[in-house]
Each structure stands twice: as structure tokens, then as C-alpha cells.
Nucleic acid binder design. Structure first.
Lengths: 262, 262
DNA sequence: CAGCTTATGTGCGACAACACACAGAGCGAT
DNA sequence: ATCGCTCTGTGTGTTGTCGCACATAAGCTG
């Protein structure tokens, strides 16, 4: 098959489930203010304690939210991809959070400047309802992460992590070193090595110098702890109304500014 | 000192910080629909998957939110006392959550039936803003729990847990067995025994058959992990506007129905 | 007080994850 | 080809928590 040109993606706001679920009139108000942003791997979207200037709606990128301890240890508590948005703080009223956000899989996101977010939010319409539902799904994911951290092995958590990531991508490979995964899960690099080896020996994934390919997704789900399924089901319930996704009226009319992040 | 009559508490909606922060006109709309409920120790407020009929505003009670795994293991991810409310699900749009709520310290709470909650919420006024802020503080607590579960020892987590509980009480003692704490923290009872022994030997607490007394709170904070402080500070920032607490106009006018739960 | 129930303390082997140290492997650059 | 860097694999000993078994203690009931 011919290789696609990597320099010319065709991002579309509708690729983000939340944006796609908005009604045409809301879309027509918001979309003109969207900016397309490229998020390179490992980019720091925001640091603990700083305030965000935009809300980000990923299309094919994945961003992780992590808490960092005083001694430098960290743990990711949340994964955000095309199913959600980054920056609920802007809605919730707080100016910042004690977390930081790191791009876990490079890609694109649309972003909306703070003033437009607030303005639309204050209309108390569809966007508000969407955000509330999404926030609840988010809480479920964070809570399940807490439980998972308590009760499950590194092996299981790696499976869960891979699944969470795969669900937000359209292909079956990830670009991240074991060291990086270690930071995400809050475990040592060697622990990830061991777990990844087992998965390789089982023929579930292949792993080479930062490139992971998922070969047997069913088995991956099988090896994962229940946490993955619980969150997935709960999220499905909360965001069921999303399928009323509209078709785009005229996607080319949406002004698009390509930016680079840091 | 003369013992107070335990049968005649003088609960007041203003003891709950969220209710107290509402403006007089919102209070006058909501308070007539409040019911006073006594929450006995270990009462199940709601079970995973069921839908709540009320929102609860604790005054001197403490309720824990826990996730239960398939194998029966559980972990508490959140503590709710007079600083908050139980049942954000009702606001957020989901009908239920995969968690269950257990009374961790007996006491009272005011509850508001679902229809009145929704009605007031749909006014998009002060209650909405309050709930959003509180929800963000809640997310912070859950997230920090996830981090804590990953990185800190049982000893530290016990300290954190005791502090969280003490902050929501007006006295310095708790009624809960080590077995019960074990369920909360998601660890074995023996682990709690060991940790509690250390604290006793240090003269920080005394523990006897389900009755814990905190003797040296400063030392308890010292022994706890940073997670406690992080959440406390963040919550303080998010709920700073709360001190605009109003004085009660005429507390006796508020209809009070004393109920029993299960 | 005898006997029961519940709560707490203790001992021991198993195991997962840790910290640290180091060995090889892959890949690009000079 | 060689160097150097990054990423991955491996070994050893330590520690925290678990699972289980059992001993003691404190309070309730009759």
C-alpha cells in the first residue's frame, strides 16, 4: 500500500466526539474560533499550578494527566483522547489544578480560547450538559485508577493502559518507551520491561525501541483487570446520547490555524 | 462538664458549608424542602448501580465513597463531610455510578429530593457554580487518592485518612474498627493493626476496640504523606468564596423531619 | 463468673515491586 | 567502522504487603 503523506493530515473537528455531538447552531458559534494545534510527543500542555488559556479537543492525539509528587515520582490518573477534552478546569471555576498534562501520543487537537469557552458555557445550553456528563465519566476513570493502583499488578495495569490508549487511536501502534510508560503508571522502568516481556512472549504485543504494536487485542483485554471494562461501560452509558452526531455542513469553511506547541 | 444529651442534637443546615454559602434567596427556596436525616454508622447510603433519590448535605456525619471490585475487595476514594455533598451524580446527568457510599461516622445530614435539586440547578444560578467548584475539589481528592495508593505506605495512608476524618468532625475521636479501616483503605486488617500500633507507641493516637482518639494532631500531619496537604490547600483555594457564609435569618422556621436510614 | 462474640496482636512463608548495578542491543552520527 | 547514545534485558538483595493461622484481650450476656 502507498504510504500516506504524514505532513498533510486532514483533521476535522468532528473527529472529536464532544465537538461532533454539539448541535449545528452551537457548532456554528464555536467552530469559527477553533484553532488546529499539533501536539508533539511529550509536549507539556500545562504544568501544575499554571492556568490554562484554552480548552483542547483532541482528534488523533492522546494527552495524559499526571500528578507529580514532591520527590519527583508521578502517576497518570487520566487519559484524554478524541472522546473528551482537556481543561475542564476552565468550566469548573478553578483557575488551575495540581496536575500536569503530557502528550502521550502525537497528533492534533482543536483548541478554543478561554473567553469563547466561558461565553458559550454561560449560555447554559448544550455545552454545559455535555461537559457535565463528560466530567462524570472522567471522575469514574480517575476513581477506577485509584482502585487499580491499589489492587492490581503491573502486568494488569500495563494491559489496561495499552487498551485505554488503543481506544483513542485509529491504528494499532503506540510510540513510547518503557521509561515513559513507567512514569505514566508510576512504576519503575524495569517493572514495565518485565511486564512487556511477558506480553511479547504471549504474542500479544511486539515492542522495539519505543514502538509498541498490539497484535492480539482480545487477549490484551483478557489479561487486563476489570478496571478497563468498568470504565468503558460506564462511559458508554454516560455518553450514549453522543451518537446523535451531526454531519458537517461545510467543513472547509472552518478556519484552521496550524500551530506548534512548545 | 455535664454530658450533653445525645438524643437531642441541634442540627442546622448552616453547618454544611455548601448550604451555608448559598445566598438568602436560594436558601429560602431550598431550605423548606430539606429533610433532616440521621445516618447511623455503616449505613449504606446507596449501592453501586442504583440511582439516588436525594442529594445529602452532611452536617456532623461523614460518608465514604468506595469502589468495590468483582472479588469483593474495595477501596474508598473519597470522603464527604460538612464541607460537601453526596450525590453529584444528580447534577452531572448520570443516573448512577459504579460506587457505593457508606456512613463512616454517624451523624446527621440534610437531604434534598431529586426534583428540587434539578429545579434549582436548572436556574443556573449560585447552586450550579457551587457544585462545579465542589466537583473540582472532589476530583482533586480522588486523583490524589490514586497517587497515594500508588506511592505511599499503609502508615502514611492511615495518617492521611485520620486527618481527612478529623477535619470533618468537631471532636477528636472516631468510631471504627481496624477491620473497617482496612476496607476503606483497601488493605488487610493486620496492616492497619501494625500501622495503628506504631501511632499508639508514638503517642499520636489511642485505639481501643473501635474507638480512636487523636492525641497529637500535629504529629499526625507530620507523619502523613504530602497528599493530605495538597488536597487541603487545593480545596481551600477552590472554596475560598465560601466564607461569605450568611447568618441564618430564622432557623426555627425551617421545617425539620427526622428520619432513619435503613 | 463462665462462656460467647468481637476486636486486636503476632508469627511465618510467599511474592510483588523496589533500588541499584550492569550487560547487551539497536541506531544514528562523525 | 567506530563511537556514543538510548533503549531494553538481567541479576541480587531488600522491603512492604499479603495470606493464613492462631493467640490474647475486652466487652456482653446469662
Amino acid at each position: 500500500m502507498p504510504p500516506r503523506s504524514p505532513a498533510k493530515p486532514q483533521p476535522n473537528p468532528q473527529q472529536n466526539h464532544l465537538l461532533a455531538a454539539l448541535s449545528p447552531d452551537v457548532q456554528s458559534r464555536l467552530f469559527p474560533h477553533l484553532e488546529l494545534v499539533h501536539l508533539p510527543l511529550r509536549a507539556l500542555m500545562y504544568e501544575s499550578g499554571t492556568s490554562m488559556s484554552h480548552v483542547y479537543f483532541p482528534t488523533d492525539s492522546i494527552v495524559s494527566l499526571q500528578y507529580v509528587m514532591e520527590n519527583g515520582a508521578s502517576t497518570a490518573i487520566l487519559v484524554v483522547g478524541n472522546e473528551g477534552l482537556l481543561g475542564i478546569t476552565l468550566f469548573m471555576g478553578g483557575e488551575s489544578t495540581p496536575s500536569r498534562s503530557v502528550v502521550q501520543s502525537a497528533g492534533y487537537a482543536y483548541r478554543l480560547p478561554r473567553p469563547h469557552v466561558k461565553e458559550e458555557f454561560n449560555r447554559h445550553g448544550q455545552l454545559l450538559l455535555l461537559m457535565l456528563r463528560y466530567t462524570q465519566a472522567l471522575i469514574t476513570q480517575v476513581a477506577q485508577t485509584a482502585v487499580c493502583n491499589r489492587h492490581h499488578s503491573i502486568d494488569q495495569q500495563l494491559c489496561r493502559w495499552l487498551l485505554l490508549s488503543m481506544d483513542r487511536l485509529s491504528h494499532n501502534h503506540l510510540t513510547m518507551t518503557q521509561e515513559f510508560i513507567g512514569h505514566m503508571l508510576g512504576v519503575r522502568r524495569e517493572g514495565v520491561t518485565q511486564a512487556a516481556l511477558k506480553l511479547q512472549q504471549l504474542g500479544v504485543i511486539s515492542y522495539s525501541r519505543g514502538l509498541i504494536k498490539v497484535i492480539d487485542r482480545d487477549e490484551l483485554e483478557h489479561l487486563s483487570c476489570e478496571c478497563y471494562e468498568v470504565v468503558k461501560k460506564e462511559t458508554a452509558i454516560l455518553l450514549t446520547y453522543l451518537p446523535q452526531r451531526q454531519l458537517i455542513k461545510n467543513p472547509e469553511d472552518i478556519p484552521v490555524v496550524v500551530l506548534k506547541t512548545q
